[in-house]
Amino acid sequence: MSTPYFRFYPTDYEADTAHLTLLEDGAYSRLLRLCWMTPGCSLPDDEGWIFRRLRVRGDDEKQAVRSVLNEFFRKVDGRICNDRLAREHEQAVGRQEAASENGKKSAAKKASLKTNDFISTNQNQNQNQEEEEDKSSLSSADDGAVVQPIDEIAIAVSAYNASAASAGWPKVQVLNKTRRSSLKARLKDCGGLDGWVVALAKAKASPHLCGQNNRGWTASFDFLTSQSGFTKLMEGNYDDRQSPQQNRQSAADDRFGRIADAAVRNRAPSRPDFGFR
């Protein structure tokens, strides 16, 4: 796991390096940075590789690097490492992994809360609608009662989830602002709830949208409410296509039907009141 920074303690560093020359101090600083950015927080035991990476020029710089390596680094299994830097690297990786895990837990908790809010909202809407229907049934049509508007969005989502259960599509768990806006636009495109039901039936009748393809891909709420996906659906791009053999059989059946129909039409009627005119 990549860690872009490490903790630096000036007091500790100065206490350990006060005897270094300016050239050696600069070499030590570069070695620490290079070691930190190298996988495993260690360097290969290859002096030429290290010189190239540190951009060493001249014998005095090479000697400064050798002095620092001999004093502050040690060799382990063909690698060169600094014990203090290795401990800092291990602690940094641990903190980063802990932060990542906490982030995942927080995201999962937020998603769960959104799902619960969505379910609770739908339940409250259904309960309120039932209460309004009960009130309407107890009053006459001449009482001047105000008819509550139908929540097309909630009904359309329920219709999708019912279709998803039989078609194998993923059900809607969260209805955010973006999804609501897309669904509202598609309802407008197809003329309301009746057109939406027709679109869902058309999608369910498509083997391709129900997973019968080489990837096992299925349609989803976001796909069906996208402008591109919905347009392709309604234009028949995903309609079931008969195989050539089925098409030939269908054509043969049509020809047989026309021959039989012609035979019936040409048959002499037994009574004037019956037959074709």
Rank of each mutant, 00 (worst) to 15 (best):
K104H: 07
S158L: 09
N70K: 15
V197L: 10
A268F: 07
A165I: 02
W36S: 00
V65W: 03
G229K: 09
H19D: 13
Q96N: 00
F230Y: 09
T178I: 13
N126D: 15
G216T: 06
P272S: 15
A162V: 05
D222V: 12
E88N: 01
W196L: 08
F230I: 11
F230E: 08
S67I: 04
L183I: 04
L175M: 15
L34V: 04
S158W: 06
V157N: 06
Q242R: 14
I50H: 08
E101P: 00
G94I: 01
A154W: 05
R277T: 10
K110T: 13
N247Y: 04
K188T: 14
T218Q: 11
T17V: 05
H208S: 07
T11K: 11
A251F: 13
W217P: 00
A201V: 00
A260M: 13
Q123R: 13
G229R: 09
F256E: 12
D254R: 14
F221G: 09
G229W: 09
C81F: 10
F51H: 10
W49K: 03
P269A: 07
S139M: 15
D16A: 09
A185W: 02
R215E: 11
G191E: 03
G103K: 06
F274G: 08
G216I: 05
T11G: 02
V147W: 09
P269Y: 02
T225L: 04
I80L: 01
G103R: 10
V56I: 10
H19A: 11
D77A: 14
R271I: 11
R255N: 05
E88F: 01
A262N: 10
L193V: 03
L69P: 00
Q63G: 02
S158Q: 15
H89Q: 02
L85F: 00
L200Y: 04
R265Y: 13
L233H: 01
L85R: 00
E152D: 12
E61H: 07
L183T: 03
F8T: 01
T121M: 07
C190P: 02
Q212C: 06
Q242L: 15
Q123F: 10
C190L: 06
P44Y: 02
V198I: 09
R7Y: 10
Y28K: 05
F8C: 01
E24H: 03
M1I: 06
M234E: 08
A252C: 03
E14W: 14
A111V: 12
K62C: 05
R33D: 05
P149M: 12
S137V: 14
L224Q: 02
R57I: 11
E71G: 00
A107P: 00
D253Y: 12
P244K: 04
D143H: 12
E101S: 08
S226E: 04
S112F: 13
D222R: 14
K177G: 03
A219S: 15
R57P: 01
E130S: 14
E47D: 14
R267Y: 09
R186C: 03
S139C: 14
S250N: 11
A167D: 04
H19N: 06
M37H: 10
D45R: 09
D240K: 15
A98W: 04
S206M: 08
V197C: 04
D261F: 08
K188H: 08
V147G: 05
K177P: 00
A64T: 03
L138S: 08
